[in-house]
């Protein structure tokens, strides 16, 4: 197991390098630079700034410089937020994004598994159709459409929840962003669970469990849930990526200064180091989380384990 993990981590390094290289090229390929504005800089100053940030060097040299900084764990200074380094920005923003993302993921799993199981148990009934229809809307309606609707309803009209992240410091400010982020995933996981659960419920060992008089709840909880979860587990990898990207919209709407916010603004402002830093960070995160998912898969399915 340890050897497997180490091998996976080692194998991820070339992937990460490739990601960084591609991101680097793309970011520099976009027209415009971090210091462009309506108001043009005096040429002497512009030259000076470029020299200070090594932006006047040929691209390969800049790339190597970036990599050597990366190896030392230094992601560079931000070109726009000149008072902060990229490391500081990420260190500040990530825990926020993490909390919201993790909560959203947990909510998505719980609600999705629950709804999907319910639909599977009553499949082809009206309840099943209702759950599936709701989940379909959850998948089809984009975040930036229903998030403002939720805000209008719960914050403006009913005043139950804060409309923005910075307006309160308690639990209530997590609710809307977490739910918004989780909704499309709930829908997707519900559908996956339903299909998988229906399939599992047909299997022979479920018939055995029923013949043992375990009752539906026990049958589902003890016997059906673990195998039914396997496709959901496989989906976790892309789901995590989706939450990371979905967080961009949510952060804009609720004014949360998380990684998504800095990522988008960094791209728009051509803040190369911020964008690259977050790309590296996200890539490493996704690789790591996929590894965790694989290990979890083995935890559930013992036949995979004894390879």
């Amino acid at each position: 197991m340890l050897r497997y993990t180490l091998l996976r981590i080692l194998g991820a390094i070339p992937t990460l390098l490739l990601v960084i290289a591609i991101a680097f090229m793309m970011v520099h390929a976009a027209p415009g630079g971090p210091f462009d504005d309506d108001r043009a800089l005096p040429p002497a100053i512009e030259e000076n700034i470029k020299r200070y940030y090594h932006l006047d060097e040929p691209l390969p040299k800049q790339f190597l410089r970036y990599l050597s900084g990366l190896v030392r764990g230094d992601l560079g200074p931000s070109y726009v937020h000149v008072d902060y380094t990229v490391n500081e920005l990420i260190a500040d923003a990530f825990p926020r994004s993490l909390k919201i993302g993790a909560l959203a993921m947990a909510l998505a799993l719980l609600a999705g598994l629950g709804a999907g199981t319910l639909a599977a148990l009553r499949h082809d009934s009206w309840l099943d159709r209702v759950v599936m229809a709701i989940s379909m809307t959850g998948i089809s309606i984009p975040v930036f459409v229903f998030a403002p609707i939720l805000v209008l309803l719960f914050a403006v009209k009913l005043n139950w929840l804060p409309a923005g992240w910075t307006s309160s410091s308690g639990v209530s400010r997590y609710l809307l962003p977490v739910v918004t982020l989780a909704l499309p995933q709930i829908a997707y996981i519900a559908r996956l669970t339903r299909a998988s659960m229906i399939d599992v419920l047909q299997r022979d060992f479920i018939r055995t469990a029923r013949a043992q008089g375990l009752g539906t709840m026990n049958v589902v909880w003890l016997h059906a849930l673990k195998p039914a979860m396997l496709p959901v587990l496989s989906y976790m990898g892309p789901a995590i990526a989706a939450i990371l990207t979905g967080s961009i919209v949510v952060e804009q709407i609720f004014g949360i200064g998380g990684l998504g916010h800095f990522f988008v603004n960094g791209a728009l402002n051509r803040d190369y180091t911020v964008v690259l830093g977050i790309v590296v960070f996200y890539a490493a995160l996704i690789v790591f989380l996929n590894l965790v998912v694989d290990i979890l898969y083995g935890a559930i399915d013992p036949r995979v384990r004894y390879r």
């Binding site: 022979d204 060992f205 018939r207 055995t208 469990a209 043992q212 008089g213 375990l214 009752g215 026990n218 003890l222 016997h223 673990k226 195998p227 559930i300 399915d301 013992p302 036949r303």
Partner: peptide, 18 residues
């Protein structure tokens, strides 16, 4: 007919407990 994801003892225990 047996659940491949659960240990044998667990499956039998479930019958007694339930």
């Amino acid at each position: 007919a047996l659940n491949p994801y659960l240990r044998v003892g667990r499956q039998l225990r479930a019958v007694l407990r339930c």
